[in-house]
Amino acid sequence: MTDLILTPNIDGVDDFYAELLAAHEGLSKEDSDALNARLVLVLANHIGDRAVLSKALKAAQLSD
């Protein structure tokens, strides 16, 4: 079983972060929220592994 990666895993993380912010630039709160929701679904589908997704949800909930 694959583990959820919770150590640094993105090359050029600053670039990615800037790209994420840029995607939201100029959007209303509503459109931004919608973009985030779509992004979550796209990424979740890419991961696919149900166990990893459950762990990701837990990690995002900041629960121990």
Partner: peptide, 15 residues
């Protein structure tokens, strides 16, 4: 929000 995200994505992406 999530429901609408699914619907908006479904038009373009099979997943």
């Amino acid at each position: 929000l999530l429901r609408d995200a699914v619907l908006d994505l479904s038009e373009k992406h099979e997943f």
